[in-house]
């Protein structure tokens, strides 16, 4: 039987959607018993939210002032200590999980599987390599603890509706002071978060300028969508780098993805191939984005976008 420890990702107040996706992935292991660990300065609210996820058997709450910010060097020894009785340790394949989990794996002398996209058995998983161009099935040697990051775009979030017990635990390991949080600057926005939005509107190089890129914001607001950008648009300075969608940016799986003035470089397509419906608007009928789009429209984006906005308002 698989005993899975899922490391919760949160901002101190709310659980990140990636955690519920990790739980869903863990439910794919036969007879899985799932425990969620919440490391925080005060994890009451987050632990309560985790306890409500369907499929979670138990929530371990580790409150320490050092856990106010998610520093891999500080969290890893605590996760490793908690991990002793578990067969699997999962975290989301977000920058949080990618930073933390390998450090945990090294402390546990365990192999890590990155970006798990499917579970075949308790020791056999599928994951993407070569920017998603080759999918490998990997088998971990029997009897080893398995650390994994879960590709969030591959799993639906497990719904709320559970009622697991929350247990406060003390993890008494010495924590290093060599790594200190100095700040975070986020582009403050009332728009949905790109990573978890159900609708995303992205703009590419064809927008031509940061000024013109505002067109994308207008349409996104009309749709209640998050805003994304291609690497070309980011490199050209039209959009901030945290909006970048693609293999080297964010990999997303919204219900609706609207690509405007994006030609569709492989690395961009890798980031959107799990979207439910892809809409492409481009003046070049030969653009590769049309090869993957569910609905395509060839034309001038500077005419189409305002017209779409008008139609959606009506």
């Amino acid at each position: 039987m698989a005993k899975v420890l899922v490391v919760a990702e949160h901002d101190g107040a709310k659980l990140n959607a990636g955690t519920a996706k990790c739980v869903r992935c863990a439910l794919g292991l036969e007879g899985a018993e799932i425990t969620v660990a919440v490391f925080a300065a005060d994890g009451a609210a987050v632990a309560a939210e985790a306890a409500g996820l369907t499929g979670v058997a138990r929530v371990l709450r580790v409150d320490r002032p050092e856990n106010a910010h998610a520093l891999a060097a500080v969290l890893a020894p605590q996760v490793a200590q908690l991990a002793a009785p578990f067969s699997h340790v999962f975290g989301p394949s977000t920058t949080f999980g990618k930073d933390l989990m390998p450090r945990v794996a090294a402390l546990l002398d365990a192999p890590q599987l990155s970006d798990v996209m499917a579970v075949e058995s308790a020791s056999r998983f599928r994951r993407p390599t070569y920017a998603g161009n080759a999918i490998v099935t990997v088998e971990v040697e029997a009897g080893l603890k398995i650390v994994a990051t879960v590709r969030t775009a591959s799993f639906e979030a497990t719904p709320a509706g559970g009622a697991a017990a929350v247990e406060s635990v003390a993890v008494n390991v010495p924590l290093p002071a060599h790594t200190r949080f100095a700040g975070v600057s986020a582009a403050k926005s009332d728009r949905p978060d790109l990573q978890s939005a159900t609708r995303v509107v992205s703009g590419g190089r064809a927008l031509g300028s940061a000024e013109n890129f505002k067109l994308i914001y207008g349409l996104a607001d009309r749709l209640g969508a998050a805003v994304g950008a291609s690497r070309a648009a980011v490199d050209a300075g039209f959009a901030a780098s945290d909006l970048q969608v693609g293999q080297t940016g964010k990999i997303i799986a919204p219900e609706l993805y609207v690509a405007i003035g994006i030609s569709g470089a492989i690395q961009h397509l890798t980031g959107i191939k799990d979207a439910r419906t892809i809409v492409a608007i481009n003046k070049d009928a030969e653009a590769p984005i049309f090869e993957v789009a569910d609905v395509g429209l060839v034309g001038d984006l500077f005419a189409i976008v305002p017209e779409l906005e008008k139609l959606l308002t009506a």
């Binding site: 192999p111 999918i135 191939k273 049309f290 090869e291 609905v295 395509g296 429209l297 034309g299």
Partner: peptide, 23 residues
């Protein structure tokens, strides 16, 4: 050599969809 690659496959391909004429 604790993680063995059992199989390598190309990713599932998305199908080309439809084209529309206007907004």
């Amino acid at each position: 050599a604790r993680v063995r690659t059992v199989r390598t496959e190309p990713p599932a391909q998305r199908q080309r969809g439809i084209m529309v004429k206007d907004c």
